[in-house]
Structure formats: C-alpha cells, structure tokens
Amino acid sequence: MALPVKISASVINRTFFSTPNTTAAVKAVGATAAAKFTTHKSASKSSAVSITSASRTITNFTSSPKNIGYQQRFSSGFAAGPGSEKVPSFGDYTKERTNDSSRAFTYFMLGASGTVVAATAQSAVHGFLMNMSASADVLAMAKVEVDLNNIPLGKTVTIKWRGKPVFVKHRTQEEIDEANSVTIKSLPDPQVDADRTQTPEWLVVVGICTHLGCVPISDSGDFGGWYCPCHGSHYDVSGRIRKGPAPLNLEVPEYTIDGSTMVIG
C-alpha cells in the first residue's frame, strides 16, 4: 500500500524552481533567491504569498530552461509577473482520491495503535492494583490450620488467628440439643444455631466480647458457653448473647472443615 508521504520538502523546492538543468544550479538559485527575496522586500509591496494544498490545485506547469547568472533575479518562466500565476503540477506525487484502501489503512493503523496502547495501559493498571493487594507474607499468616483430632469431645480450644483468639468448641449431643431448644425470638440477637455452624459438633467463634472487646472465659457462665469477666455478659453454647450488656452474638469467622483438618481464614 502506498504511503501518503512521498514528497519531501526538497522535492517541492526542486520542482518549484526547476528552471535550471542541474542540481548544482538549483542550489545556486535557492541561495540567491533567498538573498534576493529579502533585498527586494520593500519594492515588492504588491506581492502575495498564497498557500494551497497540493492535492487541490492541479495545474499543468511547463518550464523552459534559462541561464541563472550571478545577481540574476527570478526571471524564470513560471514567475514572470502578473497573470502568470501558474502552479506546478504535483500530479505525480498525489494519490487517487478514489482510492479507499489508503484511508482504510490509515484508520487501521490508528486503531491498531489505540489497541496496543489500551492493552499496555490495562496491563500497567492491573500491575498497580495487584500491588495493593495483600502481600505473600500476610497471606501466609492469614490462615490457621487446626487438627480436630486433638480436641476431645466437650472441650474448647483457643487458637490465635490474626492476633485474635478463636474458640473451637467440640460440642456434645446434649449441648447441640440445648442450643437448638432455645426460643429464637427471646434472644437479644436472634440467630438459629444452624446458621452459626457448618457441622453441629464444631462451633468456631472469635473470642472477643461484642461489648467492649474483652476475651470471655470458656465453659462458664449461666448458659454453659462463655462468660465475659469484664462486664458480665453470658453467651450460650452457640456463642449467642443471652444476658448482660453485649449487643451481638460472638462473631463466626470464615473456616472450612476438610476431614479432620479445619482451616480458619
């Protein structure tokens, strides 16, 4: 496909001042013309410089070779005075207006660069956002594995998870029945026991009292669950608040149970 730029500035100059035969003479004309142009500035008040696009004005231009001597002015065929505003033809250098492929190619190239820029920018933004996510050492500490075989029936184990205590309670059948027998509507923070456990035997709660953040004592209190020594909140075997100033049930963290291994986090 033809590139639109085929005419460099030097080609235009050469065509425009193409009266002399040799390249050396063209150069000489260029030099003297530039010099003369400034000299005659005062005299050429009626002169006009007009700019036209090459593709619009297409006039045939014929030139006759003339001798260019020292101090010779623009006495060439095409710049001979009024009424001779002949413009050289750039027909050889312009493209067919009917040729759509060049336009399509231009749009294609623009679109392609836009595509690559967008893809690169997307990748860069993605990298920056990934930079903000939790780092590997934080992620490595974020999960805690618990071997459930080490927790006998009816016992509660305290595990440190992200700096907080987590209670893992292996509940007996009586405790499960007790947790299910409560009238839900009578609770300060109504929640069914099934919503708080994945399997009924294992209860996992964050050991921080929802009142003012003390750590409750396990297997104590009026309801067989936890008792907060700071202000006397009583939690039941499902970690629900039953009595005292605490407004909410003990929080249940995210965890998964796979066989005898529990992963908290």
Partner: peptide, 26 residues
Amino acid sequence: SKFTYNTFFKRESVYFSTVVVGAVAF
C-alpha cells in the same frame, strides 16, 4: 479495505468499540 472501512471505521462508536474489544482480545 472498503468492507473493513464500512464495517468498523465509518461510525465513531463502532470504531471505538472495535478498538476496546480488540485491546482485550489482543
């Protein structure tokens, strides 16, 4: 080129969408 131009490049909205979809695909 005529087909490509008329399908993808003629309307600015289609052209822009082509570029965005193309960026994802690319």
